[in-house]
Design a protein around this nucleic acid. Sequence first.
DNA 1: CAGTGTCTGCTTTTT
DNA 2: GCAGACACTG
Length: 836
Amino acid sequence: MQLFSFCIAFFWFFGTESLHWVQMSGLPDDIPFFDEPDAPRQPSGIAARAMQARSAPPYLNGLNPEQRLAVETTEGPVLVLAGAGTGKTRVLTSRIAHILSLGKAWPSQILAVTFTNKAAREMKERIGVLVGGAVEGMPWLGTFHSIGVKLLRRHAELVGLRSDFTILDTDDVIRLIKQIIQAEGLDDKRWPAKQFALMIDGWKNKGLGPSEIAEGDARSFANGKGRELYTAYQNRLKTLNACDFGDLLCHPIRMFRAYPDILKEYHAKFRYILVDEYQDTNTAQYMWLRLIAQGSKNVCCVGDDDQSIYGWRGAEVDNILRFEKDFPGAVVIRLERNYRSTAHILGTASHLISHNEGRLGKTLFTDAPNPEDAKVNVHAGWDSEEEARAVGEEIEQAQRKGHNLNDIAILVRASFQMREFEDRFVTLGLNYRVVGGPRFYERMEIRDALAYFRVVAQGSDDLALERIINNPKRGLGEAAIRQVHDYARAKDIGMLDAAADLVETEELKPKPRSALREVVENFRRWQSQIDSVPHTELAEKILDESGYTAMWQADRSAEAPGRLENLKELIRSMEEYESLRSFLEHVALVMDAEQNENLDAVNIMTLHSAKGLEFETVILPGWEEGLFPHQRALDEGGRSGLEEERRLAYVGLTRAKKNLHIWFVSNRRIHGLWQSTIPSRFLEELPEAHVEVIAGGDSYGGYGGRGGYGQSRFDRADPFENSYSTPGWQRAQQNRSDATRNNWGSRSGARVERIGYGETDSGHGAGRGSVKGRMIDGELVAKSVSETPSNFDVGDRVFHIKFGNGNVSSIEGNKLTIDFDKAGQKRVLDSFVKGI
DNA sequence: CAGTGTCTGCTTTTT
DNA sequence: GCAGACACTG
């Protein structure tokens, strides 16, 4: 491990412009921290005089008064409400630099928590710049999970683990749960492992162990066996010496509660605590923080309640709203001076978010309004094809004017929207990158390779072994694996050991027996080489000798070369680590890979993955009811669901620095069917003063640019006015529940208002059961709709608002396939056509 | 035991 | 409309 903290003397040096860190002795962080020296003394003598003589240290220059207050209020609880683009990270990093330079704490006495590895990495880098490179001196800067791992490795035995426990990812967890469900004699079709994994995740997000979950929740799965299964799962994890992600938070909480003396040591240790993105903390993280923060009261949480968009995965906005109660005497500092966006963009975003209730309230402003700035553009389009076409044209135009594609982002609500843009950009030959797609370490071949490595590093990692025992195919089918599995269970040993035993007996059929023997011998050999062969070399050997590489070389499919390339990349990336084991540790927690930033390309991503980023030009397509706000958010989350969608819109708007384009269309293909849509209610919530309505591209006003047939409200001169600022739009709002019933099939308006509200605010987990009920209900509704025989017959002449005239060529329930005279063959719902 | 047809279901995502 | 999961067959 490279976790050496440097003992740093905090002297100001005469006349130096930046901070100088004097590295004294290398004090490994792993030595018991309670032996650490007290916090460094305040500088005295020459150093103190030098400090007084100086003007403000460089990291304070250029901070605005609020930022500076947030940096300098080091003592006591502080909540920094940092609006989008107000210099949040700058405050956090400067604050750390400030604490260090005043000599208030050693680097190892500061606990700084983030949510993502990316945020942690950025923070490390930026502190590095401020303090001149002593970043390793911050051993406790990391994600909640990575700090959790660190705590657990030290105290594993207190929660019933060994310190070399493995961390399971979602895939492993689901397979494990499936086994448990089957072992209980339950039907794993009726009770999907995936669903139960989500429930467990939900419980762990709340910090609940098997004995603490609500009776109703426990009963809602597998005929009341929920609690039993959860207990069995936890026991199984213990025997496997493994943790899931939730445990990385829950185990430390349990440990701190059970061993107050250990908690005390950490109280003494952490003098300053900082938390980034506080609005995203879930209950477990909150409990964790509360326990640790009982020591030093110097807790600084930074966040923005208006950007809380992860309620559905357990985040509690309440944590940030409650801060002042939780930490009496807290200083609340608002950062509202925005350095990112134009006044029009800020005005638009502020006006939109003001429609939410239950916020702490901030209004962003800019010091640098510029009359030249463009207003926010709202575009109306016919359908998603036109949307993609027009956006493509607009981007090409911007490119011709010399804009970088890298500065442009398309932010969508749901990933299916990306496809249309991708298709269009491919035909245009426009570079694009999809941010946040399947990540490197989640690719099948990478996970397979890692499974091999895991078994070599940890012979008892049964989940990993099961993944690759018959991959490449060795003729070890379900039957043979079951035999090994059962034997291992019976003897309470690992599967690899069980396999080793079994091949010595006559129990297996000859073919599987020799195949299994080879597997065992291979792993035994690799295991024996773990200390003698360099780990990158060993990794290559494993993949070659197991036949895994050969399998992909023999594969003639289009992806095979890419997969081999990925495997090479994996081996290459291992070079940075000291050993196979330290590499695996890294991989378990840091599941992300770098993007190619050298390529100039348009960024396409979801609104969620855009949080924290900024772009010169932002395009927000698909602002239609049902898509954004998403129907399911409304169905399952009721009012709070709508507010979260609005915050998501706010996040989208505030990503833009200069140009912001919002799109809505009147026809979109959803689940393969063309459906009419109505503009998002969020459009109505934008302030007219900052918005300009653009009448589509040149194809606007007619279908596919060929124009002419079909009339709709968007045919008029000013679609914006006519569509949502007028009595007509108001009427549409009132009729929304009817419209959505037609437009969105089974997930629909009227029914939802009856069932959906009030009970699911707590997010998934608890909500799941009731959601399921609703889905079944929805299915029934959908069926009754589709079983209603259509009023049309094959051969009927019909008219469709988008496609014009055509003949019905076939009918399935209420779904018609129609040969249109001009638009070709399409499948549409019968409610969208009229007989003529 | 592995390949081919049929059925299902369909937001957002980190660790 | 399409991907992923599952059931059936050689």
